[in-house]
Amino acid sequence: MEETRILQADDAGIAGAARLLRQGGLVAFPTETVYGLGGDARDDRAVARIFDAKGRPRFNPLIAHLPDLAKAEELALFDDRARTLAAEFWPGPLTLVLPLREGTGLSALVTAGLPTVALRVPAHPVARALLRAFGGPLAAPSANPSGRVSPTRAAHVMAGLSGRIEAVVDGGPCAVGVESTILGFDPDGGPRLLRPGGVALEALEAALGRPLAIGPAGPETETETGPRPNAPGQLASHYAPAAPVRLEARAAGTGEILVGFGPVKGDLTLSATGDLVEAAAQLFHILREADHLAGPQGAIAFAPIPEAGLGRAINDRLRRAAAPRP
């Protein structure tokens, strides 16, 4: 394959990216959360190439990105609650896991053979322009090697995937900085938070007028690396830098780079003022910087983050980054 191209986020760049996608190519593009690695969700070969480029296990489903609710309803069965959430939070950082319609033409690799599909309508203007220009659903996990730190800048994508994909559309830094919240529904109809993210749990509960169950539901099928996910973003070890990560630190240990937050000062900080929005937007970039500073013999320590609002998503990513590596 030729060298990965960087495309500008202008009309010519969007048109070129859409053309590559129609040819079965892979193009990374910015969303408000992180950069996604896009491929035609109806093309088995293109979707298989996403898994191969990332080194992602094929039992781990992907999110299909759409330009609007009407296109999303062509792929999944929406009830009143799902439409309420779509009306409130789309376009935006919310993914809904819903029953898959028959005859959609969607590659079975996108759903990992599950009877449900994960759908999102992103808010980023570049992502929306690309989806309109392409004219179909794009399967798009984060544009990084599987299990590693998610990309929030085009340079992050190039550092992990250069030479494995056709192009990156450079739309600048991502504003939200953590992946989308994923919400599904139990067999009895109850809403369930499957992954915390860019939409806070409290906002979802307010929209639905009821509390959400949290975490995977029901018996889990085991794979050789652990329980099989029933939605993206559920692997225990994920978002991991090369250096080991320690959480709830108020001071650096020997050889550690301390990432501060609020009153805890560090070598780097997610937010000196304790702003969770700023911390989420900075998280993956700071994690990469800390990894670089730690070097091959060092480690990273993170100051405590409140478990509320976007802090829930930040802590979820940090716990996965600190988890034992497979």
Score class of each variant (00 low, 15 high):
P145W: 09
S146D: 12
G147Y: 10
V149M: 12
S150A: 14
P151F: 03
T152V: 11
R153S: 01
R153F: 10
A154K: 03
H156A: 15
G160T: 07
G160S: 11
L161F: 04
L161K: 03
R164M: 03
R164I: 07
I165T: 08
V169P: 09
D170R: 08
G171S: 01
G172R: 09
A175D: 12
G177F: 09
V178R: 00
E179I: 00
T181Q: 05
T181I: 13
I182N: 00
G184L: 13
F185W: 13
D186V: 10
G189W: 11
G190T: 09
G190A: 09
P191N: 03
L194W: 14
R195I: 05
R195C: 02
R195A: 07
P196E: 04
P196W: 03
P196D: 05
G198Y: 05
V199C: 04
V199D: 06
E202P: 08
E202Q: 15
E202D: 13
L204Q: 06
L204D: 01
E205C: 05
E205T: 07
G209R: 08
R210F: 08
P211T: 02
P211V: 02
L212M: 07
I214V: 15
G215P: 07
P216T: 10
A217L: 15
A217T: 10
P219R: 05
P219N: 12
E220I: 14
E220Q: 15
E220T: 15
T221V: 14
E222C: 05
T223M: 07
T223Y: 04
T225E: 14
G226A: 01
G226C: 08
G226F: 11
P229Y: 07
A231Y: 10
G233N: 04
G233R: 00
S237W: 15
S237T: 06
S237H: 12
Y239G: 01
A240F: 14
A242W: 13
R246V: 04
R246E: 12
L247G: 09
E248I: 08
A251T: 12
A252D: 02
A252T: 00
G253N: 13
G255W: 06
G255N: 09
E256M: 03
I257R: 04
G260L: 03
P263W: 14
P263I: 02
